Lab assay of single mutants.
Amino acid sequence: MEVRTIKVFTTVDNINLHTQVVDMSMTYGQQFGPTYLDGADVTKIKPHNSHEGKTFYVLPNDDTLRVEAFEYYHTTDPSFLGRYMSALNHTKKWKYPQVNGLTSIKWADNNCYLATALLTLQQIELKFNPPALQDAYYRARAGEAANFCALILAYCNKTVGELGDVRETMSYLFQHANLDSCKRVLNVVCKTCGQQQTTLKGVEAVMYMGTLSYEQFKKGVQIPCTCGKQATKYLVQQESPFVMMSAPPAQYELKHGTFTCASEYTGNYQCGHYKHITSKETLYCIDGALLTKSSEYKGPITDVFYKENSYTTTIK
């Protein structure tokens, strides 16, 4: 009895394709271990004539594949690729409408935090270190965002349907971005203890939790000093293409032309909904596939993004 075979390709990165001759009487799992086709788990399936010449994702289970996976995804987590594939199996079914010149995501599976993050990423200057993220990001900007969303979920250790947080998501993504040249110098002034300067680099240099107003941050924000008295913390120097200011959701007025974009969060910790506000020729609110415009805006804002380049204080 002759062994019926077909020729397929296996890959971990969709760049390096490895030619395989597979036995049609055995499952993919018996031949390769966990195997995925377009995100779908085909591990328990036997090869079919229609699979001839198709590319299958496999887990990096030998040295060659491990090197290829690390170079593309910059992670050695053995569960990463499987999590990416199972997320992709959902995100490829989502709709990605162009809204006001940006790629958004039609609401499904509690994905409003991903839509808000995706919209924000198209408006701030950011370059990702893992080629996987950078490639998928370019495709997302062009309207094909399924891979990018699935990668975000995998890097953030999230599953489809789980509630997510924009600030946490951005923080994970910033860790995989090139923020080497970003720098922030802060000064804390206390009447009792004097003053202390701190220099922050990388992710810490672009994120701040405690106030939404970048102007206020430049002037000074009140913080408790270690001595128990009130101290003032203010920005001395900022070198970065953008800054992200966050605070627990509270009524906040966004003035046209003073910011790049913002995240609105309605609801409580267990259950809520994100919308995205962007400042173009007027203010726009993007909620999944829905767009509304207004000249002014007041609502429960939790993150505001500002364009920056270089700032030095005039406070002496």
Rank of each mutant, 00 (worst) to 15 (best):
A247S: 07
R141T: 11
D23T: 08
T103W: 10
Y252L: 08
Y234N: 03
E296R: 08
Q196H: 14
W94N: 05
T302S: 08
T91A: 06
K44N: 15
D63F: 09
T258V: 04
S263I: 14
K92L: 10
A247V: 01
D77H: 03
T43G: 13
P60M: 06
K316A: 15
P300V: 12
A40D: 15
A154V: 04
L81I: 15
G164A: 02
T278Q: 14
L212A: 05
I315R: 15
T43Q: 12
C182W: 03
Y84C: 04
M245G: 04
L88Q: 06
C285G: 05
L153Y: 15
T232L: 12
I301D: 04
I286F: 07
Q195L: 13
K233C: 15
T11K: 05
I105T: 02
F148H: 04
N147Q: 10
I105E: 04
A132E: 03
Y155M: 06
V160L: 07
K218N: 00
V8H: 07
E68H: 07
L81K: 09
G164Q: 03
I105G: 00
T116C: 15
V160A: 07
V21G: 10
V67R: 11
C156W: 00
E281S: 09
G202F: 02
A154W: 03
L173E: 00
T314F: 12
T11E: 00
L81M: 11
C112E: 03
V166Y: 10
I315N: 15
G39M: 08
I6W: 06
F32I: 14
L65G: 05
F56Y: 07
P60W: 10
Q270H: 15
D77Y: 04
K255L: 12
F305E: 01
G161N: 09
K229G: 15
Y72T: 06
T43Y: 11
E253T: 15
Y274V: 02
Y311Q: 11
A69H: 15
Y36T: 04
F70V: 10
H48M: 13
K44S: 12
V203H: 11
S295D: 13
D38Y: 09
N100K: 13
D287G: 01
H90R: 11
E168I: 15
S263T: 13
L151F: 03
V166H: 00
Y57V: 10
C193Y: 07
C261N: 01
A262R: 01
Q98R: 14
K54L: 14
P300A: 08
Y96F: 14
E264S: 09
L126P: 04
Q31I: 12
M24F: 12
L163T: 14
Q20C: 12
K218T: 05
V42F: 13
Y208L: 03
K191A: 12
A177H: 00
T91Y: 03
M24G: 13
V42Q: 12
E239S: 07
C271F: 15
G101H: 07
N129D: 09
Y138T: 14
S295M: 13
N147P: 10
K92A: 09
K298H: 13
K54F: 13
L186R: 06
A231P: 02
C227T: 01
A145K: 04
F148Q: 04
D63N: 09
D41K: 07
M245K: 01
Y155V: 01
R141P: 04
T292W: 05
E71L: 07
R139A: 13
K93W: 11
P78Y: 14
E264D: 03
E68C: 06
T19N: 10
V67K: 10
A140D: 04
H176D: 05
F9E: 12
A289R: 06
T27R: 09
T5V: 11
M24T: 10
L118I: 07
P78C: 09
L114R: 06
V236C: 07
N187H: 07
W94V: 07
I286V: 07
D109C: 03
V189K: 10
G220W: 00
H18M: 05
R66K: 13
K7V: 08
V22I: 11
V189C: 12
L254A: 00
G101A: 02
I6D: 07
N268M: 02
T64G: 13
T312M: 15
H90N: 08
T91C: 08
R83P: 03
S25C: 10
E162A: 07
W94S: 06
L114C: 08
G220H: 00
V188E: 06
T282D: 11
S79W: 10
A205E: 06
A150C: 03
S246Y: 00
D38E: 12
Y214I: 10
T312N: 08
G228K: 06
V206A: 01
P131R: 07
R184Y: 01
T192E: 13
H176W: 15
R141Q: 13
E308V: 11
Y214T: 04
L37W: 13
Y84I: 04
Y297F: 10
Q196A: 10
E281P: 08
E144N: 11
T116I: 05
K46G: 09
T302F: 03
P300F: 15
Y36P: 07
R167F: 06
L283G: 00
L17Q: 13
Q216E: 14
N129W: 12
Y306G: 04
Y274N: 00
G53Q: 12
P97Y: 08
M85Q: 00
V67M: 11
G272I: 00
P249A: 05
E144K: 09
C182L: 05
L81F: 10
Q251I: 15
K46D: 04
K93A: 11
